[in-house]
Design a protein around this nucleic acid. Structure first.
Lengths: 343, 343
DNA sequence: TCGAAATCTTGAAACGTTTCAACGGGCAAC
DNA sequence: GTTGCCCGTTGAAACGTTTCAAGATTTCGA
């Protein structure tokens, strides 16, 4: 494979000149630049990223670590981040921790040996001390997404979880429901706690009682959500609507409904947080509170780039993004501007 | 950040020795090795991948380029490849071309700059000459997945597409259908052509006529599939079942059905290629011909590693994987061992 | 006890870049 | 015609590793 020396030799210039046309093109005269570019073309020269990163002390790499790339939220996130990063000349290193913190830590180490310039992290579970120190050792800017980690001083981009919980619940109430099941994540996680708070707030605002028996912790996972939904249905007085606070649990809930032959909104209504790519492909089309994933990814990368560029300094900021209520047909209300669904 | 020199200094040995404990641990005496490891620990030393790759002429990086990471097939594939690669000490660089060949080519250049050791490629669309030469310039082993590219001599891992088409169609026929719509990809792609061939073969085997009016090219994409399904429904004599040859088109078809308020299998039956994570969460649960994605990813990586290790030599081989028919409830046949679905 | 062989350790070169100080030549000002 | 400056170009050092030949030490057999 051709090196920069080969190019220099062929173009009859010094190695430094070739490097200059690559990096600061204006420092070299048009004539030489032309010769150099021709030589590069002819040899189909491609610089060696390792060597470059060694000398420049910057790799052009950005790490993105997510819990489950199979989850549409994260794959959309990757897409958004990669697009934005490419526009700024960065390459994104995706790490999939499978929601296991050992894997996540192994990945962080890997990213350190790659000398990434910055990291976007969707932390899985709670913050161990171990992980905090791994992050610190990275010695690069870190932006948290989806879940904030307090006290570490990192920038974060998160959903307005309280509002998401509020709007979903409020919509259900507006559709006439008074007993609303909540399939939530573990309350030790801030996201789950806030979504629950929003739920309670909407109940309160409508003068409805809060019944703890209607809320279940399904760990933000699909299987437990199936189980949780089954429990809710087995209640002496089951809810007439259910609200699942993430997409995995939405699927779990739907599975249980499908198993029982129950249809929305005929038998029970439902709404979830996170839109799903196939939400409009099922009958009835699924209402949801969507996260602005793309915008979140872009915001995170923007924060990171500003830290890298030095434009942004000081303690970490938290960017809160507004959820978006998508009214479709799973809660009994007609979608705006469309005739009601006839069963 | 600590370098190998710092470690050497602290452990009071030479740089070469430190390198030896890192690479060929048995070449160094237990005592020194202990000192060195302690020093590394104390300095929390992490090697510099760039420098290493520069010297070793091997980066430990494997490229994976896919058309759409948002597609469950590809995100599952990434997961499988990453798991297997991690087990062999490789890091996977994921590139998402968004099904645009310019992006794909940009990515290939990027990967060359990174000096990847090998590439797994799910080619988008047809093979341009341009891309063939980019691949050649990589100068590393390449394994194709999902779609083979003939004449380039690369290893490939593909589904037995003919059989997938055959089994899906046969199942529909077994459920009593005689007019079966086919929402297919463009026949210029081998995968689409073969799936069509399987469809025709099943028809033939059952003594049913082949009606070209029942097959549509929806470009393997969702939107066109919606349209195609609408056309099929508008036929004077619409099909009683439809077979979509990938997951995106399955969603498109379902959307059209949902829009029309049509249910499976009550109003029309359907089956798709590619299983979907939520196939069991919808009513009725969706039958499908699944690709063994994990096994395919592992096979591809295995091929790659064997090329890298020199165990595998000579012209490229093609590994054909068997599809798996998942009978659920969207075609009217009762799932085995379960009572029929009552509507 | 000596020499040879085996084992461990190390200095130095090399990998492909970027960067920086220094150089040379042309040109304007005096 | 000299001085000084600016601009484009370059040689060489440095980045953090691995590798290899050679040096040092130990082991063993004769």
């Amino acid at each position: 494979m051709a090196t920069i020396r080969d190019v220099a030799r062929l173009a009859n210039v010094s190695v430094a000149t070739v490097s200059n046309v690559l990096n600061s093109a204006d420092r070299v005269s048009p004539e030489l630049a032309g010769r150099v570019r021709a030589a590069m073309e002819k040899l189909s020269y491609t610089p060696h990223a390792g060597a470059r990163s060694l000398r420049k002390r910057a790799s052009g790499l950005i790490g993105l670590v997510v819990g489950d790339i199979t989850n549409p939220f994260f794959s959309d996130l990757f897409e958004a981040v990669e697009d934005a990063a490419a526009a700024s000349g960065y390459l994104v290193l995706l790490c999939n921790s499978n929601e296991r913190s050992e894997r996540e830590e192994a990945h962080l180490r890997m990213l350190r040996t790659q000398r990434i310039d910055g990291l976007i992290l969707a932390p899985t579970g709670a913050v161990s001390m171990n992980r905090a120190s791994l992050l610190a050792q990275l010695e690069v800017p870190v932006v948290l997404i989806d879940r904030a980690m307090e006290g570490l001083g990192y920038d974060a981009v998160v959903l307005d979880n309280r509002r998401a919980g509020f709007e979903a619940t409020q919509h259900l109430i507006a559709c006439g429901h008074r007993r609303i099941g909540l399939v939530n994540g573990p309350e030790v996680l801030r996201t789950a706690a806030e979504r629950l708070a929003g739920y309670r707030e909407a109940l309160l605002a409508a003068g409805l009682p809060f019944d703890p028996g209607l809320v279940r912790d399904a760990g933000f996972r699909e299987q437990p959500a199936e189980q949780a939904m089954a429990e809710l249905l087995a209640l002496p007085q089951p809810p007439s609507a259910v609200f699942a606070t993430n997409n995995l649990m939405t699927i779990g809930v739907m599975k249980t409904l499908a198993d029982r032959g129950l249809a929305c909104p005929r038998d029970i209504s439902m709404i979830g947080i996170d839109d799903l790519p196939w939400a409009e492909a099922v009958s009835p089309q699924l209402s949801a509170v969507a996260q602005p994933v793309r915008a979140m990814g872009e915001a995170a990368l923007d924060l990171l780039l500003r830290r890298l560029g030095g434009t942004l300094q000081g303690p970490g900021t938290t960017t809160v993004m507004a959820p978006q209520l998508l009214i479709r047909r799973s809660c009994g209300a007609p979608a705006p501007g469309r005739p009601a669904h006839v069963d």
